Simulated scan of single mutants.
Amino acid sequence: MAPLMEDEVFMAFTTYAAIVILKMSLMAPMTAFFRFSRGAFANEEDVALKPSEERKKLLRSHPDVERVRRCHQNDLENIVPFVLVGLLYALTGPELSAALLHFRVFAGSRIFHTIAYVGALPQPSRALSWMIGFLVTISMSYRVLSKVLVL
């Protein structure tokens, strides 16, 4: 394990994996913030201590809350595959410069995707940022398969 932790590519991977996982994890408190600030809750137990009339008003959806929630769902669909494929990619021994390019571009695309999603920036900003991150994961997958394909 010690030699792996000294490998520059693996250290770069763990750095950027931690960054995007932290970004994804911060979406849950952001969703809670939007729920409380917009007064829009999804479950009855969330408003159980409120008076009956107020409960009815608070049990509703709000576009801002839904936007943040969908952004978090999109993170789960993209960051988890990146972390899994990125680990395999790092183990194939790529050049540090190529690995850093993959990791940095993916992290940047996910951060920008969140800004575009939550900030409701006009398309194609969100679509392009998603596509860039997706292509990075595909590129790393290609490298892994080209190095270890055994059928």
Rank of each mutant, 00 (worst) to 15 (best):
L49Y: 14
E66Q: 14
L4P: 08
R67L: 08
L151D: 03
A98Y: 12
G86C: 05
M11I: 06
A90H: 00
S37Q: 12
A116R: 08
F33M: 14
A48R: 15
A42G: 15
N74T: 06
E8F: 04
I21S: 03
A32W: 14
L101K: 12
P124R: 09
I111C: 03
R69N: 10
S139L: 12
F33P: 10
F134Y: 12
T137A: 06
K23S: 10
P122Q: 12
A40Y: 13
E66G: 12
L76D: 00
C71G: 06
W130N: 14
A120T: 09
V20C: 02
V136Q: 10
Y16D: 04
E95Y: 02
S109E: 04
F103N: 02
Y117A: 14
C71E: 05
E8Q: 11
C71L: 03
R143W: 06
F41L: 11
R60L: 09
F103P: 04
R38I: 07
V80M: 12
E44S: 15
T31Q: 12
L91Q: 10
F106R: 03
Q73F: 06
A17R: 00
R55L: 12
R110N: 02
P81T: 07
A17P: 02
C71P: 07
L87G: 10
V65L: 13
F112H: 11
L100R: 15
P124K: 07
L84G: 13
L26H: 00
